[in-house]
Amino acid sequence: MNRREFVLSSVRTAASVSLLGLGLSLYSRQASSLPAWALRPPGALPEADFQGACIRCGLCVRDCPFDMLHLARLGQNIPTGTPYFIAREAGCEMCEDIPCVAACPSNALDHSLTDINDADMGLAIISDQEACIAFQGLRCEVCFNICPIRGDAIRLEYRHSKRPGQQALFIPVVYAEHCTGCGKCEEACILEEAAIKVLPRHLIQGKLAQHDRLNSNGSL
């Protein structure tokens, strides 16, 4: 092979490989989108970083004592090989020693998370007040009672009923500061379709513009 042939064949190969790389990258952009109903284990890096860090070994899945984590399979709408859980099926039990994080070899589940109450898997929201029976004056309180951070992440708040003959409403209110997104409330909701749901925090939480804030914690 002379020099000309060598350069030509190298350029050809480089061009083909670049095209392949482009195709793979485009595919990966689509393949890496995570649906809102699939939640990451505690300590997971922000989704974009998580996709780079996670080596898809499944050690977190295996070390979960409650078997509520799964590895996505090819064909599911979840990035293949990455761990997730579905709150409605089984929420995170919030183990104190956080075995899933301890098992992670890549730090995709951040080992700096040492207090499970600091986890941020998502945020609960009463997604349907018309369906939630607490808003109809019934004393359900299941989500309030099952919440691992009971009384802080979900509080029952008293309101007067406007309906004749009803004394009061005790409605569940989620406090974003305390909610870890474990999903137990959604799992436990007694309705056929849960009226409280856990979704990624950025889809739910509002935020004041910087110039409207009076103090550092973001409140007025």
Binding site: L24, S28, R56, G58, A72, R73, L74, Q76
Partner: peptide
């Protein structure tokens, strides 16, 4: 890209992970 692109198609890990965790 900041993403582990190869793992979306890697037959080696796909097969081994698939046999153990479900192959899809």
């Amino acid at each position: 890209t900041g993403t582990m692109v190869w793992e979306y198609v890697n037959p080696v890990s796909m097969l081994h992970r698939g046999l153990i965790f479900g192959i899809g």
